[in-house]
Amino acid sequence: MKRPIRWRSLTAALAILLTAGGLQLLDANPAASQAVLLVAYQSPSDPGLDPSAEAWNAVRAVEVPLSAQRGSYAAGGGSVSTVRLKALHHGSRLFIRVEWNDQSENASALRVEDFTDAVALEFPSRSASTVPSVCMGQPDAGVNIWYWRADLDLGATSLAAANPNMHVDAYPFTDDTFFTARGAGNPVAGDGPVQTLTSHLFGYLSTSPVQDAAGAGERTSNGWAVVFSREFASEGPDHASFAPGARTDMAVAVWDGAHQERDGMKSVSQFITLQVADARLPESNGLDVRLVVLAVGLLLGVSAIGVALAVYGASERRS
């Protein structure tokens, strides 16, 4: 009797299919440490800072897995499991688009318990003597960080608007001295949604004297899409530099305000490779060759399995 064996293999096949389907549905990627390559081709048009710009439609996204930061105080995060990255360059500027799913929109830090959604890209400093630690760099190899926060770009920053019934007789002084952090030149207290930062170790995140990273985000149907951009060359000490034909490392971190994520409490990627290709974006002719090959292959494979099963069944019936 060979019947029970057939059931066993069928169950195993079903289990594998279900697991694969489940992982797909949950956006989880168990192969987290695989090397990922993000290629920035030259864009025929200027994509600008608009995440919905036409230019991005022609670019295929690279999916990068994220995990909770458990290495250092303050550990935490892990609310966002993947980001989808796209990259382009135009003129002498690099553009990187990050998109991720986040059902809750947290674009305010007006109450003490409110934390904003945010995203950051990290690159090795051009003066790094070696590949820096992905965890905020190391003393001899710094990192350059571009940080975008939702509240300062698209969210609520007006205390009066958030508290319509608030009454104050008078504020005697309103110059920057009395907004102490702003008076001290802290960019957290500034208006810009993107900060250019550098770091040489956990706890050593610093504001760069040259603020040259730009960016803008938009709320998508189920998350955020943010575009960062900067000139290839930068004056900033410890900034990254880019050039057509050159590769560099890049990592991503995402904060979900709904889970009070901030600081080290974040979802982070490993370093991926960013290649700034000295070539134009390949023309898209509607159908991607690789997709076609995959579809044909799948079709052939399924047919072959069907035929094999039919032959096997017939032989079983005969015996």
């Binding site: 303050a74 830090a109 003490v112 102490t180 952090a181 008076g183 001290a184 030149g185 802290n186 957290v188 207290a189 995140l205 901030r262 600081d263």
Partner: peptide, 12 residues
């Protein structure tokens, strides 16, 4: 230090 604080509120 109001220049270094990034509003993480770990102190709060």
């Amino acid at each position: 230090d109001q220049e270094r604080c990034r509003g993480y509120r770990k102190c709060v």
